[in-house]
């Protein structure tokens, strides 16, 4: 197991600069949160780590490492091979395939034994996926699709899991359920990089967090520090001072 580290990451989509020199670290075994409004560059950060920028015509400078191995420049499948697996924003389950086939797609290329082990683990975490095994993934509810997306990623046997807004659009009960699952997955030894707009939830899970704004890290610290920070309380948790500048209004309006 090794720390995932990103240093001086600069990403552009053609002329659009999406990240401007971002550095962060996910210590082995921890949960680290990345917070920020829409368009801050959170998904871009995960794409750069996973090696999928080329699907968006993005290009990247800077270095991503896992322990002493460089991930930069590897293709997406090789990054998965190193144990860094992403659950993309919007779940992206293979809607035309069955639940079981989705899980299979996550565990391709693993040995029979590893596959069976991962399959048991996923079934234990998400019993509903076992019940729905033969159903088309497109017919699942949003929450079930999120479970499937996480389960599918777990089939690859990740040491580090990247989660892009896993509770987006879910009912509060289901969001809480997913939150619990993330805690459970982490307690089994998987590091988690959690991208969230739900700041309260993210800070309750994470030990450490970074706040991204327009492609830059503007705040970072332990979750406790950030929970206490005026900036975060005011802008992301909606607590405290009601006086807001134009910038704050812009950001806040996106939280509602």
């Amino acid at each position: 197991m090794a720390d995932l580290a990103v240093s001086d990451l600069v990403v552009g989509y053609g002329p659009v600069r999406a990240l401007r020199g971002v550095s962060m670290r996910v210590p082995s075994g921890s949960i680290v949160a990345v917070l920020g409004a829409n368009g801050a560059g959170k998904s871009t950060l995960l794409r750069a780590i996973s090696g999928t920028l080329r699907f968006h015509r993005g290009s990247c400078q800077g270095v991503v490492t896992l322990g002493d191995q460089r991930l930069t420049g590897l293709d997406a499948a090789s990054v998965v091979g190193r144990g860094v697996v992403q659950v993309p924003e919007g779940r992206r389950v293979f809607a035309r395939m069955t639940v079981e086939e989705n899980l299979r797609a996550g565990g391709l290329g693993r040995s029979r034994r590893d596959y069976a082990k991962a399959h048991d683990q996923v079934a234990a975490l998400f019993p509903v996926l076992k019940e729905r095994a033969r159903q088309r993934a497109g017919l699942l509810s949003g929450g079930e699709q999120q479970m499937l997306a996480i389960g599918r990623a777990l089939m690859a046997g990740p040491t580090t899991l990247l989660l892009d807004e896993p509770t987006l659009g879910l009912a509060p009960l289901m969001a809480a359920r997913i939150t619990e699952t993330i805690k459970e997955i982490n307690s089994l030894g998987t590091s988690v990089l959690l991208v969230e707009q739900n700041v309260a939830m993210a800070l309750s899970l994470a030990s450490h967090a970074y706040v991204l704004e327009v492609g830059e890290v503007v705040l970072e610290g332990t979750a406790a520090e950030l929970r206490e920070s005026d900036e975060v309380r005011r802008r992301y948790l909606g607590i405290g001072d009601a006086v807001e500048g134009a910038l704050e209004t812009r950001t806040l309006s996106r939280w509602s």
Partner: peptide, 15 residues
Amino acid sequence: RAAAEDAETAALMGV
């Protein structure tokens, strides 16, 4: 089939 349905996500799964 995974690649045909969503190439990026298939790649994210190690395909």
